[in-house]
Design a protein around this nucleic acid. Structure first.
Length: 586
RNA sequence: GCGCUUGUAGCUCAGCCGGAUAGAGCAUCGGCCUUCUAAGCCGAGGGUCGCAGGUUCGAGUCCUGCCAAGCGCGCCA
């Protein structure tokens, strides 16, 4: 409809130009938008205001001219010039209520569109290091990424969801070490636990399982483990040096084979746990992409070679640097350390190249906002590889600050003191958690109140929307109990009986749903959908309180039932995109 | 110190490429259940859109400065 009005306006402007009443060579972009106020009709344009200066006449005068030049359209009931020079369009209600028929026909697919058809989009989200269970900070990225993926799919894109598994690098070695030390404790060895190691309970669990599995095969006396080590922080030493030395000790005592077994035991257990956790949260992936695979397939070497050939690498202080500064970064970055090892950044460049090589038109990274300083260097790398950086989009998600009532909760992975995503789900439920996480704009700080999310009361917005759905279901149950028949066809033929303001408002909202999906998808802003659903639920509840649906007048009853069935369908569709259930009873 | 982000009602937040009188939920106050679920509805109060300039027909929205908060500034990942 919007497009239709816009082309009508183009026609009108063309007419005026031909008549010589308007001398413009402008191609105004999208210029029609939904009216914010029902008094202003259904759609509004401000072209007259925008063009008045160039046309050298008063906006209202120009608006009147444009209106007079508009082609006839049966879908438009009334056009008026208002305010300083807005043109308001009032749609023909008889035609607008056809959306109810459309919703009935399209069912769960209503709202989908084809904007992204034929385009492949890659979306990577969460990608937490497999060094421990997911916490509530990851939850927001998980919920957000999953919903953006759903929205893009509904907009016609071919979506590939991916979790990048950081299964290489120092943090993983520290995890392996942590498990081994707990294992040694379990064997009866007494030795201090580094201040820097992972001290969560899950580490002990994995260690105990390992002990059952391998017996004492990985056991060494405490003094052999600790001899000649640099001291830990608690003894006045450097904790980083201490823990790196311990990792080296583990490798040398256990040898390659056993160390890999230890390492994999931790990785597999934690990865399995993360996968299960996300699954229970309704978050699924098409692929779990291993960082180690990149190094194993020489992908990092190949990528660096490509950068070298393009003249983006140089050597300084014994290290290899990527000249990212001339591509918009603050400074150049090391890709190969003095000791010959790749930096994390190097494998990340290779990972991005790999994504584009797989043929995706658009690549989306959902990252925690604390990584925003990392964005320019990745963009620089993409550009250096000859890829249009506009094809890469980094979406930043702010951490949620967790409260329990007024009490602010602190968390830190290393110390093991954090609220896990699983605990959150257990406490507030999947629906409330998903809803809360995407209720706010993702790049905004947000306060997540556990007490509120868990509240079984009207304070909790998730129930408000679900309740509207359950209420419609309840009406249909009542219909059955009374032994009344529902005639859908008759209802469709009598939609023009829906003349009440509440009914018109609902119909207008229903017709907006596809636009909301498209907007939320293209802007990667799921919160628009949440706000829309709250508004739709509100319009339904107020309608419910004002008018009886199950009336004696059968044509009217059938028309109303078709309307509320459409409302139920749209709420169910919207909640499905959010990953929230649509209960039939509450 | 430099960079990025944010500042809207008592609280949590919307505000769609600059548009008409700045909105919602919660909280507060007052009403509505013999009638389809009261997890609901109706109504009231509540604002210098951080501050000061600027751009123009028009600024919460764009620009500059200042104030405040968060985050980032490793041969960590």
């Amino acid at each position: 409809m919007k497009n239709r009005l816009e082309s009508s306006l183009q026609t009108a402007l063309g007419v005026l130009e031909n008549r010589g009443e308007l001398d413009l060579h402008l191609a105004p972009g999208p210029m029609v938008e939904r009216a914010r106020d029902a008094q202003h009709g259904d759609y509004v344009t401000n072209v007259a205001l925008l063009l008045a200066k160039a046309a050298k006449c008063h906006p209202r005068e120009l608006a009147a001219k444009i209106v007079s030049a508009l082609p006839n359209d049966p879908a438009i009931a009334k056009v008026e010039v208002a305010g300083p020079g807005f043109i308001n369009f009032f749609l023909n209600p008889a035609l607008q209520c056809r959306v109810i028929q459309k919703i009935h026909e399209e069912g769960h697919r209503f709202g989908e569109n084809t904007r992204g058809i034929g385009r492949k989009v890659h979306i990577e989200f969460v990608s937490a290091n497999p060094t421990g269970p997911l916490h509530v900070g990851h939850g927001r990225g998980a919920a957000y990424g999953a919903v953006v993926a759903n929205l893009l799919k509904a907009t016609g894109f071919e979506v590939h969801r991916e979790y990048y598994v950081n299964d290489a690098g120092r943090q993983m070695d520290i995890l392996a070490l942590s498990i081994w030390l707990r294992y040694l404790e379990d064997c009866g060895e007494a030795l201090p636990f580094p201040s820097n190691a992972y001290r969560g309970d899950y580490v002990r669990t994995i260690a105990q399982d390992l002990h059952k599995e391998v017996g004492d095969a990985f056991r060494y006396p405490a003094d052999r483990v600790q001899i000649d080590l640099p001291t830990d922080e608690s003894q006045g030493g450097d904790r980083e040096l201490h823990i790196d030395a311990l990792v080296a000790r583990a490798k040398s005592l256990l040898g390659e084979e056993r160390y890999v077994e230890l390492f994999n035991a931790g990785l597999q257990r934690i990865l399995h746990d993360i996968r299960q956790d996300l699954g229970e949260f309704g978050v699924y992936y098409d692929e779990w992409f291993s960082e180690r695979r990149l190094t194993a397939t020489q992908a990092v070497d190949a990528t660096l070679q490509k950068l070298r050939e393009a003249g983006h690498l140089y050597e300084k202080d014994g290290a290899i640097w990527f000249a990212s500064r001339q591509l918009g970064d603050e400074k150049d970055r090391v890709v190969i350390r003095e000791n010959g090892q790749f930096t994390y950044f190097a494998s990340d460049i290779a990972y991005h190249m790999n994504k584009f090589e797989r043929g995706f038109d658009q690549v989306i990274n959902v990252w925690g906002a604390d990584h925003h300083g990392y964005v320019p260097r990745v963009c620089a790398a993409v550009r250096a590889l000859g890829i249009d950086p506009a094809r890469l989009r980094v979406l930043l998600v702010q951490f949620a600050v967790l409260y329990r009532g007024a009490e602010r909760m602190q968390m830190s992975t290393r110390s093991g003191e954090f609220v896990t995503l699983r605990q959150l789900r257990n406490e507030v439920g999947k629906d409330a958690a998903r809803f809360f996480y995407v209720m706010r704009k993702s790049d905004q700080h947000m306060d997540f109140d556990l007490k509120l999310a868990a509240a079984q009361s009207n304070e909790n917005p998730v129930y408000y929307v679900q309740y509207a759905h359950a209420r419609v279901c309840s009406v249909f149950r009542q219909l059955d109990e009374r032994g009344w028949e529902r005639d859908i066809v008759s209802g469709m033929n009598n939609l023009e009986l829906l003349t009440q303001p509440h009914e018109q408002a609902l119909i207008s909202s229903l017709s907006r749903y596809p636009e909301i999906i498209e907007q939320a998808a293209l802007q990667h802003e799921p919160h628009h959908l949440v706000h829309f659903l709250r508004g739709l639920a509100y319009e339904f509840h107020t309608y419910y309180n004002t008018h009886q649906f199950l009336v004696e007048d059968q044509p009217l009853r059938d028309a109303r039932l078709n309307l509320i069935a459409a409302v139920r369908q749209v709420i169910a569709n919207g909640l499905a995109l959010l990953g929230v259930s649509a209960p039939e009873t509450m």
